[in-house]
Amino acid sequence: MAPPIVRGTAAWKYFGDFRDALLAGQVLVLQVAHPVVAAGVRDHSDYTSDPWTRLMRTGASLSIYVYGGVSGARVEAARLRSVHQAFVGSLPDGRRYSALDPSAYAWVHATLVMAPVDAQRFFGRPLSTSELDEYYAQLCGIGRILGVRERDLPPDWAAFSRYYDEMVAGFAGNPTIDQLFETIETVRKPVDWLPDRWWLPLRRAQARGQLFLIRATLPPALRDRLGLPWSARDQRRFDRFARVVRAVSTPLPPGLRTAHMRWTGRLNVWFRAHPKAYARLVGGNGPGATPPRVPPDGPARS
């Protein structure tokens, strides 16, 4: 049984650390490197036309898993699986796919498991062996709530690391990754009232920064297969940046580093209990919408 996620435990301290956001682009690339995820994003995602809303909803959903309590995580998991049941289509080779394909579903979860560990490795202090054991057990518990099959969850961190490396070794470029890079460079402004003369330089700066962080934090072998350049000078720049982030953020208490995600999780649990408020303030079928019925012990798993 997974240890409960309470104040001071590994998942509580690291999953919502604000430094995790520095790996957002890396996580997206790794997710859409999976051919089924790439096809699903290509056919069903609206992130290219409305990336800011998609980003906010994704952040809200993630916050519930760890900081919204077990009941909140179960309801959000059921909502996600209900939404994704309709996401079906064809792969480039003609085979049919489903967004709930067990391998793809487990891989998306795996990228979210690894990101906070990578964030600490790059920008903080690497997790100790005992922290990794506790963190992984807790995230396996989240995975089971989300509906990841038991056999798709490696039994311990060492096995998970091997699985993760083996998956990455099988990935290469695809059109969805190319579209992701293009979207980063051409993303529309988040609010219409922002003047173009302000937004255009901001967009160029965020694109440079985001693409640099993607190149810096992707597994090097995959970075090479994607044809992304990386030089010794780039590595020195990244090392300097990482040192600054580490110096500024590491002295902060974990409660402060995760406050935004914890409050977001609580807010979205409240939205779930007040769907009219969610519909008025946010809109759409999100945490505040009427959830599907959840079995007493969570979503059904195959």
Rank of each mutant, 00 (worst) to 15 (best):
L222Q: 06
G124Y: 00
V244M: 14
L194A: 04
P251R: 07
P92K: 14
W230H: 07
P102V: 05
A38W: 04
P291R: 08
F15P: 00
S128D: 13
R236L: 06
A21M: 15
R246H: 08
R280D: 10
M56F: 12
S63I: 03
L267G: 08
T264V: 13
G147H: 05
S130N: 13
G69F: 10
Y97K: 01
E134D: 02
T9C: 06
F171V: 00
K13I: 11
G16Q: 11
I142Q: 01
T111A: 10
S231Q: 15
A259N: 08
D178R: 03
R208H: 09
L267T: 14
G284A: 13
A11C: 04
T129Y: 03
T53A: 07
A221N: 01
A169T: 10
L281A: 12
R233F: 11
L281T: 04
K13Y: 04
F122P: 02
A10C: 09
A242Q: 11
I145L: 09
T290K: 03
Q210N: 08
L226V: 02
G94M: 12
S302Q: 00
D43E: 05
V6M: 06
V168S: 10
R162C: 09
P92Y: 14
D93A: 10
G288Q: 04
A158C: 07
F181T: 07
A159R: 10
R236I: 03
P253K: 00
R236C: 01
A259P: 06
R266P: 05
Y67E: 01
L91I: 10
T290G: 03
E76P: 02
D17Q: 05
A39W: 12
Q85F: 15
A115Q: 13
Q179E: 14
W12K: 07
N174K: 02
F181P: 09
L80Q: 10
P92A: 15
R188F: 09
A99T: 06
G40M: 15
I184D: 12
A221G: 02
A159N: 08
W107N: 12
R243S: 08
